[in-house]
């Protein structure tokens, strides 16, 4: 808890502070909440198995051939769930990018990170971190998809210049 709030709590008996700019009295919420979601990946397990082998997997509708990335287990074109997992060729062309300077606190351990969207030669587009010098990027930049280990310890795909 903030020192000022602690002091006021002891002195006045309430968790309050005076806003420095406006002089308005604020109650500092005592109910802190930490959020962490538990998200089902049951139906896209092959995606993660692929990632472990350095592969980028997408789903493909057996009936109409539609490819889904990010992968999904149902084809709304066919009302069918008969899908197969297919490996994407890991090359494509960069379409746009940014560099995130002001980061969410949950990404605080990282330096400013470039994010790019590329169109894979196999069709789907992919958004990921760009492991390369953003200032060297030219229109039509060719990129590859590679798998790297994050600081948090898990494997994730990223884009890199060819």
């Amino acid at each position: 808890m903030d020192e000022k709030v602690k002091k006021n709590l002891e002195e006045f008996g309430f968790p309050v502070i005076v806003d420095e700019r406006s002089g308005a009295m604020q109650w500092v919420d005592m109910r802190e909440l930490r959020l962490r979601y538990i998200i089902s990946i049951e139906n896209i397990k092959p995606f993660y198995e692929g990632l472990r082998e350095g592969k980028l997997m997408a789903t493909k509708c057996k009936k109409c051939g539609r490819i889904f990335f990010p992968p999904q287990k149902d084809c709304p074109s066919c009302f069918d769930s008969d899908i197969e997992w297919v490996e994407m060729k890991k090359e494509g062309t960069l379409e746009t990018m940014t560099v995130v300077f002001v980061k969410p606190p949950s990404f605080g351990q990282y330096d400013p990170y470039p994010v790019a969207i590329a169109k894979l030669d196999d069709g789907p587009k992919i958004l990921a971190w760009y492991n390369g010098d953003p200032q060297q990027v030219k229109p039509g930049q060719r990129v590859k998809v590679q798998v790297s280990r994050r600081k948090e310890g898990y494997l994730m795909y990223e884009l890199a210049p060819i």
Partner: peptide, 24 residues
Amino acid sequence: FWEFENFGLTFPAYYALHGTAYMM
């Protein structure tokens, strides 16, 4: 799940991807 969880997109970053594409 696909964009925030792994790549830390912020609201400015989402639109910056458009701003860059438009400039290019």
